[in-house]
Structure formats: C-alpha cells, structure tokens
Design a binder for these strands. Structure first.
Length: 528
DNA sequence: GATACGGGCGCC
DNA sequence: AAAGGGCGCCCGTATC
C-alpha cells in the first residue's frame, strides 16, 4: 500500500498545491493531473539552505528554529516500530518540537486527523519558507515557484520517457558493439573481436587487459609511445606515432557504446512503448542543475539519430544560445555586458570592445567564468577586466567567498556551499582552496543559468499542454518537446515566447537578451 | 560480498 | 607556478 496522496497535500489558496516533495505527487501525475502550480517544500528547502538533503524532518527543524544537526534518529523502514512510538499517533510533533521520526509518510490506513496534521505541518513550513525567501528578494520566491514546477516536471519526465526509434537505435548499437549477444560466450567473443585490432597492432605482447589503464600504458611503452596517462587528449597528440594509438582510440569509442550504451542499456531503459526512461532530479546537490540517469544527459552524439518522434509527431528542439555569458550579464548587473547581450552573437561586440578576434574573446569569457587563468586567455582576460569591471568583479567576489569556504548565492537565491573537502595534516591546502574558489566562481553562473533554464522549461510545459505537447528532455540549455506534428510550428513559436516571458520574470527586466535556436525535427540529430 | 576510490569519458 | 565548472557511468583495484 502506498502513501495516501491526499495526506501529503494541502491547498494553499485556490491554485497552488503544497507538497513535501513532488515525488508524492507521482500517483496524481500518473492519473494525468496537470498540477501547474505547486509549492515544493523540499525544493524550497534546497534553495534556502543548499545541499541535497531536504526531508520533511529537516525542513521542519529549520522552520521551527531547531538544531537540524540534532534530529531524532529515523526509525527506518519498519512501520511497526514506527507506529509504536509513544503518544497520540495523530500528533506528528514531538514534545521537544521536532517532527516525529515516523512522520515520513502518511498511509492510506491512517486516520484523517493524521493526514490533516501532515498537511498542516507542510503548510507551516511553507509559510516560514516563503517569508525567508521574500527576505532574500522577490526573485527568490519566483525561483521557488519555478523550482517547484521543475520537480513536478522531473516526475513527468520519468513517467513519459524520451521517444526513440528502436530499430535505428539498435542498428547504431550493433555497428559499434556488435550483434546482440545471446549467451555469455557470445559476449566474450564480441569483446575479443573489439580488442583484436589493438592487440594485433603491437606484435608479440601476449595478453593485455585493455580495460586496465596501467596495462595500456605499458602496452603503449612497448610500442615506443611514452605517455603520462592514457587519456584521449594525451593519446591524440601521439596519433601518428604508432598504429596502436588510433586503434586504441577507436577501441575506446566502441567499448564505451558496448559497455554503457549497449544491449544491456537498451533492455534496461527502453520500454515496450519505445520510450527511454531514467530517474530525474530537479537539482543536484551543487549549483542546482537538473540531473538525469540512464544516459539521458550524456548520450553520445552518434546515438542521437536514434532519438526520434513517434508516428504522427515531431520534436521541437530548442537550444539557448550563449546562455552562460548572458546570465553573467544578469547576475552581475553589468550594463556594458548587458548591452553586448543584445547582439545575436554576444562575442562579436565583446571582441570589438577588446580589440581581439572573436575566438579569443570567446575563450576569454569562458575562462573568466570557469576560473581558468592559464593558457591563451591571459591577455584577453585583462582586457575583460578593464572593459567589464562589474561583471568580472562579481566573479572575483564569488571566487574569494569560495576560497574562504563561505557559501555563495545564485541570482535566484540558491545557497551554494563551498566548505567541501578537507586537507590532511601536513598537506598543502592550496589546491583545495583554489578548487573551492573556481567552484564558487562557476557556481554563481552555472546555478543561475540552471534557474533560468528551469523557469523556461516549466513555462514551456504549461504552454504546450493544450496542444498535446510533452517536454521529453531537459539538457541544461536544450529542450526537446514531443508534439503532434500538426502543432509543430505553433509549439516552436510558444517555446520562443516562453523564453521571453520566463527570462523577463526571472531577471526582473528585459535589458539582457536571451536567444533560442528552435527547430521542428523528426530526429534529435537533425537540427544544428 | 559490499563498498570506496581513481582513471577515463560521454554530455552540457 | 598555475592546470576550467557540473553530472552519470563503466571498469579496475584496494579494502573491509
């Protein structure tokens, strides 16, 4: 018996539903409920406090001003033990003020009073969260709404899956990994066939385990190729030195498909309805991007032709252009940089102002946001600091906060903790401090971009619903919408309009331009 | 047998 | 001297 959904919800006003977590809404969503507006206590908690842990007891402790580090020990999954906790089973709050450890769910067999208490507790936390977010600024509340909707979208993405052309996908896998193995012996044979060209390229080496980097390194040494590691970028420099190197690179490509995106992956993640499904989260534990499992976020480009609309449908594919520098213009409030964003290609005016070629400007801007100091970007970076001191100052400030182990906040108010890692006694703290600084410098951009993206995605979700459209993939700056083919062009228009609306709402103004490359396609691989 | 970690690499 | 951020996933090794 599953949790009673009604117990996890309480109406807040006529239109926004409060939930401890969008996960609890899965049964309603499975039944086709639209749920356009929610307040997700867990997502609001993550926004306010950072990190990923956001269970009801933790959120409750914060709302009540109790030490969240001293939470009563959870009872675990044993319901009978849980139910044996002392006191009135309908009173979910302990005498010391903490939420009872067994309050993690309300079950269909529980009393109405218990369900209502569960809902009231969520409402109490919600009111406290709203008040705290308002103090952070109007954008934080807007962001909490978008993050709440994104959590619902994550449940829908899991429910709906990504449409694939099974035959095409199987053919792509076959080309790289060989035919579908029916027995273990089959599998061993195709494995040996993949290995053979590499092993044959260096005579007289006997048995070498290509899956062991150390063994590969000594194999390369035997062939006269001395490398510090066997990474692709390192090997690429030696590609003409010996045939073993290109053979190895080709082996890696095929091995990756065979192991990660091969027959087992197809069997485990592609359903009988030709949908590829994996678990989704609305935000990771770091800067707040969405995450996806089952390869949905890192599907190799060569498999993407296998992602295709179902019969009678099309995919509307939309990519945000240069989203990170545009977000930098917003979060820093740098008016000169904002002015550059009015160009369809932001790097053009930046290059002009710096007096450098466009590729140099691009590298410099990216280096500034990633915290890179080395390489060709150095000179142009100093130019950036002169031309856009407000934007660069914002990044530098974030970096200093990170170096000090202090948290930073994204534009929408998400707390990003930087006090991670530790140095052992006698160890040089320098690398850790620097990595915290780079992380923070990037997090204010990456995290803010994630907020804008999610605000866009959930706006699209609502806009396309009347046309039978489904958001089927969110990829950091790219959206795929699956829609009946007669509505393809209209949905493309709605996607672009949603970007203008959500960007203006999230920024609070429209001085920074955001652009989308939007097209109607049959296969994911067709556009761009 | 389960877990943790690093090398490596796919995507953004 | 310095060595770009995030995620998920595979494999191998080392460890309990």
């Amino acid at each position: 018996m599953g949790p009673d959904v009604a117990g996890g919800l309480a109406a807040l006003g006529p239109t926004r539903w409060v939930t401890w977590s969008a996960r609890d809404l899965a049964p309603l969503l499975a039944a086709g409920a639209a749920l356009p507006r929610t307040w997700d206590v867990a997502e609001a908690h993550r926004l306010l406090h950072g990190g990923w842990r956001a269970d009801p007891a933790t959120a409750w402790a914060h709302a009540r001003g109790l030490d969240p580090g001293a939470l009563p020990a959870p009872v675990g999954d044993d319901l009978f033990a849980a139910l044996s906790e002392d006191g009135d089973p309908d009173d979910l709050v302990r005498p010391d003020g903490y939420l009872r450890a067994d309050a993690g769910a309300v079950w269909a067999g529980d009393s109405l009073a218990r369900g209502l208490a569960w809902g009231r507790a969520a409402l109490e936390v919600t009111r406290w969260q709203q008040e705290r977010l308002e103090r952070l600024g109007p954008r934080a509340v807007v962001t909490a709404h978008a993050e709440s909707a994104a959590a619902v979208l994550a449940v829908e993405l899991e429910r709906d899956g990504l449409p694939v052309d099974r035959a095409a996908l199987e053919e792509l896998v076959r080309q790289a990994a060989g035919p579908r193995p029916l027995t273990e012996a089959d599998e061993a044979r195709t494995r040996a066939e993949r290995d053979a060209p590499v092993l044959a390229s260096v005579p007289g080496i006997g048995r070498v385990d290509l899956r062991n980097p150390a063994a590969v390194r000594s194999l390369l040494a035997t062939a006269g190729v001395d490398v510090p590691s066997t990474r692709k970028s390192v090997l690429a420099e030696h590609v003409h030195r010996h045939p073993v190197v290109p053979a190895l690179l080709e082996w890696r490509r095929r091995e990756r498909i065979a192991t990660t995106y091969g027959w087992r992956w197809l069997a485990e993640h592609v359903g009988a309805d030709d949908r590829l499904r994996g678990a989704w989260t609305a935000c990771d534990g770091a800067a707040g991007r969405m995450t996806a499992q089952a390869g949905l976020h890192n599907l190799p480009a060569e498999l993407r032709p296998g992602v295709a609309a179902a019969a009678g449908h099309v995919l509307v594919r939309a990519d945000l252009g240069q989203v990170e520098p545009r977000v930098l213009a917003v979060v820093s409030g740098d008016e000169a940089f904002a002015a550059a964003s009015t160009a369809a290609d932001l790097y053009e005016p930046v290059a002009q102002r710096l007096g450098v070629e466009r590729p140099v400007a691009k590298i410099a801007v990216l280096a500034a946001m990633y915290g890179q100091r080395s390489g060709a970007a150095g000179e142009a970076l100093r130019g950036l600091e002169r031309a856009y001191p407000v934007a660069m100052g914002h990044l530098d400030r974030a970096q200093r906060e990170g170096e000090g182990g202090r948290p930073v906040r994204t534009f929408g108010g998400r707390l990003v903790r930087t006090a991670f890692g530790a140095v052992g006694p006698g160890e040089d703290p320098g690398p850790l401090i620097r990595s915290r600084g780079r992380f923070a410098r990037n997090a204010v951009i990456q995290g803010s971009a994630a907020e804008l993206f999610k605000a866009w995605a959930v706006t699209v979700r609502e806009a396309v619903r009347p046309l039978g459209g489904q958001v089927v993939l969110c990829l950091h700056d790219e959206l795929l919408v699956h829609v009946p083919q007669e509505h393809g062009e209209e949905v493309a228009r709605l996607v672009d309009e949603s970007l203008r609306l959500s960007a203006r709402r999230w920024c609070g103004h429209d001085r920074v331009r955001f652009v989308s490359d939007t097209s109607v396609v049959r296969r994911w691989s067709e556009a761009k």
